[in-house]
Simulated assay, not measured.
Amino acid sequence: MRLRIFTEPQQGASYETQLAVAKAAEDLGFDAFFRSDHFVKMGDVTGEPGPTDSWITLGALARETSRIRLGTLVTAATFRHPGPLAISVAQVDQMSGGRVDLGLGTGWFDQEHAAYGIPFPSLGERFERFEEQLEILAGLWGTPAGETYSFSGDHYTLTESPALPKPAQAGGPPIIIGGFGAKRTPRLAARFADEYNVPFHQVADTGEAFGRVRAACADAGRTKPLVYSAAQVVCCGRDEAEIKRRADAIGREVSELRDNGLAGTPGELVDKIGRFGELGAERIYLQVLDMHDLDHVELLAAEVLSKV
């Protein structure tokens, strides 16, 4: 089981704060540093100093780290046209020496679209655009050097693109598709994903979602292996007082986090991670909401990472 640190910088984190967490994650032995791709805070926080662009941030972190993988969970297909997105991700992959994973989704938070003038079409259209983006990314990154790539869809048209730059990873960075949808998400994961992620669901529900994607892979005749993973809010402490202090800092109740996330003592976290592992999960994304609490990251490394 690999553990990845997953952050939400739109809640209030400068680049320097993200750098500190990323370097701690690398130094402490975690597999990856991931961040969300949002432009507006959620919940009762100030969100100051304001949002940071995910791919600009990851490009900088690519040069400040040397081992951990870097990625988004997840970039919204509504935020960027597929051609420029392919260029940005390929460049960061080059800058990191091939350490990038791309989590990509439909986009869902209408408030951030309104706040920054980003069109927010219907859910059906967002899925259509998402599918075309996935096909275009694969086409651009998979086009042999010296050849061009064209695409004609309902929402995007590319004409004789040079399909440059190429990522460092052959064929492009691994694609992560997440979500809990019953039909469209499993179909797209079976067709395009290298990893399928279930975010913020209980163990039993996660198992059901894994089952739907496995069935979609079978229906599609897919033989390429697919990585299964889960994302969970994390709140760990050596005793109840420390657990409660960390829950209070992120505005959550301990009992609710124990039910719906990874909360409790290190032993409790190890046990619950094991239950996800029994379902076939190979990676757990630990959503660290208080990015200023590096002692929390150190505890997770010493008492949880070391035991899974």
Rank of each mutant, 00 (worst) to 15 (best):
I5P: 12
Q10E: 13
E16G: 15
K23V: 11
A24F: 13
A32S: 14
S36R: 15
S36K: 15
V40E: 12
P49A: 01
P51C: 00
D53L: 12
A62E: 02
L70R: 05
S96I: 05
G97K: 06
V100S: 08
G107I: 03
W108N: 04
F109H: 15
D110N: 15
A114Q: 15
G117F: 08
G117H: 09
G124M: 05
E125N: 10
F127A: 08
R129S: 01
F130M: 08
G139F: 12
W141K: 03
T143N: 05
T157H: 13
L158Y: 10
S161V: 04
S161W: 11
G171R: 08
P173S: 02
K183C: 03
R184M: 08
R191F: 12
A193M: 06
N197C: 07
G207M: 02
A220N: 05
A220Q: 08
R222P: 07
L226K: 10
L226Y: 12
Y228N: 02
S229M: 00
A231V: 09
V234E: 00
V234M: 01
C236W: 02
R238F: 07
I243V: 13
K244S: 10
K244P: 09
R246S: 01
A247Q: 06
A249Y: 09
R252H: 11
D259F: 14
A263Q: 04
G264F: 05
P266D: 00
G267I: 00
V270A: 00
D271E: 11
G277S: 03
E278Q: 12
I284T: 10
L286A: 07
D290S: 10
M291I: 07
H296I: 01
L300G: 08
A301K: 12
V304K: 01
V304D: 00
